[in-house]
């Protein structure tokens, strides 16, 4: 994020007022006007603005969480068929706020990471992507259209699937550590019951 991090540009608008433009890359994000007389407040303001802008540009670039070996949807289903582990699908979106929150507050947990990486084949689907994948039926569709099949019309949606694409369980929206652990237990119980 350092390369694309925010920059603050100060310019004098008049004798008593200057403007501050916070930009990321070449794109202005925010523009503020500050009275020149507020010298000490102004410095504090600048620091706050900087911190705010760092948060703004560095936090919400939601993607798959780090430390998880996510595959494409079709590769995950193929691997699931071989390994007999179910698939855990993360339907996310570029810039998705609740995805980022779940990544930070739940997927960063070591217990969650161990449970999910050891019990599931992980798939990440970008709900806006045109990337092509193949369904178990042989149909070629885009990642975006997977959303229409699995009713993932918001992000994030987390679905547990069998290797032939049937839904075992799903969760919608922000998840906490306890939610992910409970969902894992529920899915494992369902699998055990189905196997009996």
């Amino acid at each position: 994020m350092v390369e694309n991090g925010p920059r603050i540009q100060k310019s004098l608008l008049s004798d008593s007022v200057f403007s501050i433009v916070i930009s990321s890359s070449n794109n202005p994000i925010t523009k503020y006007s500050v009275p020149e007389t507020m010298t000490s407040v102004k410095q504090l303001f600048l620091v706050c603005l900087y911190l705010f802008s760092v948060l703004l540009t560095s936090t919400v670039m939601a993607d798959k969480p780090a430390g998880y070996p996510f595959l494409s949807f079709d590769k995950a289903l193929q691997q699931s068929a071989v390994s007999s582990k179910p698939v855990f699908v993360y339907f996310g979106r570029y810039g998705c706020g609740y995805c980022d929150k779940t990544n930070k507050e739940a997927f960063s947990n070591e217990q969650v990471r161990k449970l999910y990486t050891s019990h599931y084949i992980l798939a990440y689907v970008d709900a806006e992507s045109g990337k092509r994948v193949r369904l178990p039926s042989g149909e070629r569709i885009t990642e975006r259209d997977i959303g229409t099949r699995y009713n993932a019309f918001v992000t994030p949606v987390f679905s547990f699937l069998t290797s032939d694409g049937k839904v075992i369980n799903r969760m919608i929206g922000v998840q906490r550590v306890v939610d992910l652990i409970k969902a894992h237990e529920t899915v494992q119980q369902k699998i055990q019951q189905a196997g009996k």
């Binding site: 670039m61 979106r93 810039g95 998705c96 609740y98 980022d100 929150k101």
Partner: peptide, 10 residues
């Protein structure tokens, strides 16, 4: 907070 940086268009 749900929007994150933006709300999603396609």
């Amino acid at each position: 907070a749900a929007y994150g940086k933006g709300h999603g268009v396609a």
